[in-house]
């Protein structure tokens, strides 16, 4: 049992809208930087960056965050995810950081990402952009920019497919298989 929540066109529209919202809220792109959370947050952040650069005609800083080392479930007996590189090559000071991820669920990933970010410096603010907000927060975290709000049962699985990683665009909801 699965159904499509967003198709490629929907995702593209959501990215456009969020780009405009980011620009409106931050009065342009002068002091913003986009940081994607591995794995699918990176693709989302790159799309937002491209769109923003098209609209404003300036270059925007971009970084990649691997939050593996900041997770709170590393020692709970689960197999560890493969550690990949974190790449943040610009100073965070004075910047409004737009943290990007595909799905917002418990909020634990975002907590880890904020901790990781703070180890690189003191940004002016951190804002959160997600493609899907599916609820069920376990921490007091809320998104600033949302592609689509999807009330879900906790047992459902949301799968975001992005061309850069999966070869196609789409958001699918299905019953948990395992």
């Amino acid at each position: 049992m699965s159904s499509t929540l967003l198709n490629a066109k929907d995702i593209s529209r959501a990215v456009s809208r969020i780009s405009h919202e980011i620009l409106e809220r931050n009065h342009g792109a002068g002091s913003i930087a986009l940081v994607g959370i591995r794995t699918r947050g990176v693709a989302l952040s790159q799309r937002l960056r491209k769109k923003i650069e098209e609209i404003e005609n300036i270059t925007v800083d971009h970084g990649i965050l691997d939050i593996t080392l900041y997770r709170d479930d590393l020692t709970t007996g689960l197999e560890k995810p493969e550690l990949k590189k974190t790449e943040i090559s610009f100073a965070l000071e004075g910047k409004h950081i737009i943290l990007c991820d595909d799905v917002l669920f418990t909020g634990r990933t975002i907590r880890a990402a904020i901790d990781a970010l703070m180890d690189f410096g003191r940004p002016s603010s951190v804002q959160l952009a997600v493609l899907i907000d599916r609820g069920h927060r376990e921490l007091p975290i809320r998104p600033d920019y949302v592609g689509k709000n999807v009330p879900t049962a906790k047992s459902k699985r949301i799968q975001v497919l992005l061309n850069e990683e999966d070869g196609e665009d789409g958001v699918i909801i299905r019953e948990q298989s395992n």
Partner: peptide, 20 residues
């Protein structure tokens, strides 16, 4: 070796510490 490649960046940060 792959994991160590990823860890190398931490030693170049201003705050050279992760909570892992």
């Amino acid at each position: 070796l792959d994991t160590a490649d990823s860890f190398k960046e931490i030693s170049t940060r201003a705050i050279k510490k992760v909570p892992t």
